[in-house]
């Protein structure tokens, strides 16, 4: 549609109070569309009137441009437009930076721990699920150890300490027996999870100080005592390096040398005045789990 000079003047005057250029252009386009609609309506209702008259009447119906200008200036605060533009620039810059600096490596690292990729993780995963990792593959394992899965456990105990929530996600109980061991000893493979803020994950030093005691009163030394202090102990708690994602850190934990017949085992932390414990009931299934 062809527009008249009067229309342009009216529009310019009406939006001149809006200080943000982006806002001014958007409102001008909206008013122009409104004016065109009004003109088209008039032509439809009064088909005999020429276009110029319809435009004149439509413009008159839009009101006093000075009054519209004051109202629009009041409604469209300039800082909002500038803030919008600044937020756009900020988002674009950080998006580019994140893309360049974070990249594919970052995404891969971020999702690490969700994957059970390594052979070691697969073995731990089997043990913690109460499945013999070498089940049906005994020929490759000539260490002479007979591994009997006794139970797949899902302890419900959890404890909140400081910024963290510790829980045992799952555990597998096995009887390990070789020719010289009668009746063998129990080993517990458990996955300890420590949920906390991603920017302050629980330290491995903490987990390495976990000791244990079972229902028979037998005590198990911590990983720290066995590996750092070189204390010799029949039963002990072994902890592997933590892994996980930004939500939770996971530690593979093995309690070695549990007295067969123990009804529960309690993991205990007592260092520098902080104490907490997690109890795992050792409910042995009839005839073992057999995977």
């Amino acid at each position: 549609m062809e527009h008249t000079m009067a229309e342009y003047k009216w529009l310019d005057m009406a939006v001149s109070g809006i200080r943000s250029r982006a806002d001014r252009e958007a409102v001008r386009a909206e008013l122009l569309a409104h004016l065109e609609d009004k003109t088209a309506d008039l032509q439809r209702v009064f088909p005999q009137i020429p276009l110029s008259e319809a435009q004149e009447r439509a413009l008159a119906g839009m009101g006093d441009p000075e009054e519209v200008r004051r109202e629009l200036a009041r409604v469209h605060r300039p800082w909002l437009g500038w803030l919008w533009r600044a937020s756009q620039v900020l988002a674009a810059v950080t998006l580019v930076l994140a893309f360049v600096l974070y990249g594919g490596d970052g995404l891969r690292d971020w999702t690490r721990g969700l994957e059970q990729d390594s052979e070691w993780n697969r073995i731990e995963d089997c043990y913690q699920s109460g499945i013999d990792p070498w089940q049906g593959d005994g020929a490759d394992r000539d260490d002479g150890v007979i591994r009997t899965p006794l139970a797949a456990l899902q302890p419900e105990d959890s404890v909140r300490v400081g910024d963290y929530r510790f829980r045992i996600k799952r555990a597998g109980l096995f009887c390990f027996q070789d020719a010289e061991q009668e009746p063998g000893e129990w080993w517990l493979f458990a996955q300890l999870r420590a949920a906390g803020p991603p920017w302050a994950p629980a330290s491995e030093n903490v987990i390495q100080r976990l000791r244990a005691v079972d229902s028979t009163g037998r005590e198990y030394a911590s990983s720290y005592e066995v590996y750092s202090l070189r204390l010799e102990h029949e039963g002990y708690v072994m902890v592997d390096q933590g892994r996980g994602n930004w939500l939770e850190k996971r530690f593979d934990l093995t309690v070695i040398g549990i007295a067969p017949g123990a009804e529960w085992i309690k993991l205990e932390y007592d260092w520098m005045g902080t104490q907490w414990s997690l109890t795992i009931p050792l409910v042995v299934e009839e005839g073992g789990t057999n995977g």
Partner: peptide, 19 residues
């Protein structure tokens, strides 16, 4: 729109902080 831009900025900044 401003809120969306700020949320996007925060997500990107967090990714960089994590990296």
């Amino acid at each position: 729109s401003i809120l969306c831009n700020l949320v996007l900025t925060l997500i990107c900044l967090y990714a960089l902080w994590d990296r």
